[in-house]
Design a protein around this nucleic acid. Structure first.
Length: 488
RNA sequence: GGGAGUGUAGCUCAGUCGGUAGAGCAACGGCCUUUUAAGCCGUGGGUCCAGGGUUCGAGCCCCUGCACUCCCA
């Protein structure tokens, strides 16, 4: 990997040491962030060309632009808040000029000096001292184009983050969103809990799990596909309002909206039901919108999504009628329609075929935020049935931009019915991937679980739609990538 | 799993009909005290993803593989 660029920078590193400077710096206290420094400069009301010698600031960041002209240099340094210009005069820094000549794009430096504006009105720290904080030995991507190679961006996210400011902003937004979700849930009286990711038995969703093994106990384990069955045990235990924000793992495909590990906010509210969960979704999203600013109408790809609550409610049945042209109850018609669009449903349960048809024909049309209600009961083994029509489950999924953002039930808490629906799954009815019987969960229900509403919100997708990020990989710092070098 | 596309300098990208590799930025040397994609002069830099094939000759055509992107199941 020794190329001319690397060697040139290595030589400069040695030259720094010869000057008695540590190329990798040390503790650097009292740094003000770039945006705060800019705000400070605005308040001073400086005129172009004016410097306030009494206002001294300390900044630190990575050099992203450099303009050196003889005995005067300008650097642009970047931190997580933004960019700031540094002006360096040879006359002012004296011996420090030797360091200036050894600086490369990508180096991390600290700066002290008075705050001013240049003749062209750019806010500038006129450095009287520079501190080397870290030498960059690799050539960073060009400032103008940034790092475009999408594979490199994910594999070397650290470069993506410091080179592509929009990427930094998206992840800062993600952090604000998660803060807002926690704040909203706390405000509703929910407590945050953590339940096992390593589970001896998987359940709570329809998905293939990752498997692993515990050596000491010589026990196979699954990475959880859902925390649902554990959170419900907490309802049994008397925690009336619980939520968890954590990773789920599903051993399935990767796509612009799927990553094998993804973050879910899942909550349960004793004595509540589906309508409470609708309020939670609308409230959480509203809290996020408030935290991010920019209002309820937000761009996403070439769309404008309007998250203003309340969101419309549409039933599964009417949407299937509208977009697939069939009645959910008409099993033959559903199968005919499914077959006509290439769904191979011969070995599948009726409701599974219907759901494939729903996914294929309806979901793309669910652009504006909407709650889809009344799902076929056969694909909802953990959900209470509608009292007047047990073929339908008291469930909704929240959609936006054609994507499922959330999934909620009025929870099934009758242990006898629960045993029945799980048995049906195990027997191959409904969705085979849910075919696991968790006896301890049933025992818990037999102790009595309060009636409850439950909800899961996909945090990654929520961040996507709120930050106009078209791929889930744009909102996951280190999305799963194929290993390099296989077969070499 | 199937289909389409992409892979060329550190980065972003050109590369015509198959004829011996190009630009901008970055780097190196020089000039330069108000630049902001600084400017000017000069220089260096390539496993054209990998392997095979066709051909006098392959970045370009063919085959296989690898990686990535998008679409479909």
């Amino acid at each position: 990997m020794a190329d001319q660029y690397y060697e040139d920078r290595q030589k400069k590193l040695e030259a720094l040491r010869e000057l008695g400077l540590d190329p990798y710096g040390s503790r650097f206290d009292g740094v003000t962030r770039n945006t705060a420094i800019r705000q400070q400069a605005e308040k001073l009301g400086l005129d172009a060309g004016q410097t306030d010698e009494s206002t001294r600031v300390r900044a630190a960041g990575r050099i992203v632009l450099r303009r050196v002209m003889g005995k005067l240099a300008f650097l642009t340094i970047r931190d997580s808040t933004g960019d700031l210009q540094i002006g360096i005069s040879k006359a002012k820094v004296g011996d420090g000029w030797a360091l200036v000549k050894l600086l490369d794009l990508g180096d991390i430096i600290g700066v002290d000096g008075p705050l001013g504006r240049t003749k062209t009105n750019e806010i500038t720290i006129w450095a009287d001292s520079l501190t080397m904080l870290s030498k960059c030995l690799r050539t960073p991507p060009s400032e103008w184009h940034g790092l475009q190679d999408i594979d490199a961006r994910y594999r070397q996210r650290y470069v993506d983050l410091f080179k592509n400011s929009a990427v930094m902003q998206a992840f800062l937004s993600r952090s604000r969103i998660i803060d807002a979700v926690r704040g909203h849930m706390r405000g509703l009286g929910f407590i945050e809990v953590e339940t096992p990711m390593l589970q001896p038995m998987y359940g709570g969703a329809a998905a293939r799990p990752f498997t692993t093994h515990h050596n000491t106990l010589d026990m196979d384990l699954f990475l959880r596909i859902s925390p649902e069955l554990y959170l419900k045990r907490l309802l049994v235990g008397g925690m009336e309002r619980v939520y968890e924000i954590n990773r789920n793992f599903r051993n399935e495909g990767i796509s612009p909206r799927h990553n094998p590990e993804f973050t879910m906010m899942e909550c349960y509210q004793a004595y509540g039901d589906l309508t409470d969960m609708m309020s939670v979704v609308e409230g959480v999203v509203s809290a996020c919108v408030e935290a991010l600013g920019g209002g309820f109408k937000r761009p996403f790809k070439d769309l404008e999504l309007d998250f203003t609550p309340p969101w419309p409610r549409r039933t599964y049945t009417e949407l299937l009628r509208e977009h697939a042209g069939v009645e959910l109850a008409d099993v033959e018609a559903v199968r005919r329609k499914a077959a006509s669009i290439g769904i191979e449903g011969a070995k599948m349960d009726d409701a599974v075929v219907a759901n494939k048809l729903f996914e294929a024909t309806v979901e793309d049309h669910l652009i504006q935020p909407v709650f889809v209600t009344e799902y076929p009961a056969a694909i909802c083994p953990l959900t209470r049935r509608k009292p007047d029509d047990p073929s339908l489950a008291i469930r909704f999924e929240a959609f936006a931009a054609g994507m499922e953002l959330g999934n909620a039930y009025t929870e099934l808490n009758d242990p006898a019915v629960q045993r029945e629906t799980l048995s049906a799954q195990v027997k191959g009815e409904g969705d085979e991937t849910m075919a696991v019987m968790d006896e301890d969960f049933l025992t818990a229900l037999e102790y009595g679980m309060p009636p409850a509403g439950g909800l899961g919100v996909g945090i990654d997708r929520l961040v996507m739609v709120l930050t106009d990020s078209p791929s889930i990989r744009d909102v996951i710092l280190f999305p799963l990538q194929r290993k390099l070098g296989v077969g070499e």
